[in-house]
Simulated scan of single mutants.
Amino acid sequence: MQSCSGNLHLLSKIISISLSSGSNIVAYKLLIFDFDGTLANSFPWVVAILDELAEKFNAIPVDHSKLDELKSYPPRKIMKMHNISIWKLPAILKFTRSRMKTNGESIRCFEGVDAMLQKLKDNDIRMALVTTNTCETVRRVLGDDLYNLFHHFEDKVSLFGKPAALKRIIRKSGLERSEMLAIGDEIRDVEAAKKVNIPFGAVSWGFSNLEVMASHSPEHIFTEMGQIVDLVLSPSFKFDQAV
């Protein structure tokens, strides 16, 4: 549990980012979403197969009592802690995608995703999706109507392949980098956006600890789904109103 001083520090960080991001007019024309942990609440499903993954790939089992602690660590540290070498990642991702495709019926979107995506579409905001998951799983979870709202897709991206995927989206979009916003829930998401020099919005409801995400200086922090729409459609919106 975070201390009172820790919570105050996080609140101060969020307000600082919010005020600085609200000082300029925002004119994002393309939002690039991560899927798992940002649009889809897939973490409980992943937790349920962790022991199976550890046994199959000779990894050190995850201590389920320390899951919250892991949310503060970057992926390479988590891999090292559990004896997962980088050469195992393609096989692990392939296995996980296959299992999710055939046995992922319990995965649902976060509350408010449908209204948020539809509102963006209704206001001519273009959307893209960059994910390590498959388009088949994304379509099943979102449903055809929401899936078809997206203009660009990059699926089956490797764990550390998001910078390259974002570059492909940038080229296909024909927009300036300042006109697009990447949105995600993990440390590797914000790192990928920084590498290709596009603004980033961190969500509070996904995997990585929000204080850790804030320490990477994202341009925006979203603590509620509706704030994404508020930012894009109301340039003068300041997040300190919602903190």
Rank of each mutant, 00 (worst) to 15 (best):
A193S: 08
K66H: 08
I78P: 02
A202M: 07
F43L: 14
E179L: 06
L39D: 05
G226S: 14
E186R: 09
A48G: 07
S158A: 14
I78E: 03
Y28N: 13
Q2W: 00
S217D: 13
P75D: 09
V229N: 06
D145P: 03
V138A: 15
Q227S: 08
E211A: 13
F237Q: 00
F150C: 11
V46W: 10
L67E: 04
L120H: 02
Y28H: 14
K121T: 10
N58A: 13
I198E: 13
A48E: 13
M81Y: 08
F43I: 15
L53P: 00
K101G: 02
K194H: 07
I14A: 03
L19N: 11
V46D: 04
C4M: 11
T102V: 11
E105K: 10
S72A: 14
S3G: 14
M100S: 07
T134I: 06
S173R: 04
S158I: 03
R99N: 10
H64K: 15
L120W: 08
G143D: 05
K29M: 04
V212Q: 11
M225T: 15
G201W: 02
N123E: 10
I84W: 05
R76L: 14
G37M: 10
C4G: 07
E55Y: 01
R97W: 06
P61V: 01
E211G: 10
F57V: 05
G201F: 08
S208D: 09
C135H: 04
F239V: 01
M116F: 12
G112L: 06
F237G: 04
F150L: 08
S72Y: 01
S20L: 10
H151N: 13
S18P: 00
S18M: 05
V232R: 11
G143W: 07
V190W: 01
D230C: 14
I170M: 10
E154P: 06
K162M: 11
F153S: 08
P61M: 07
R188Y: 01
K94T: 04
A182I: 09
V203G: 12
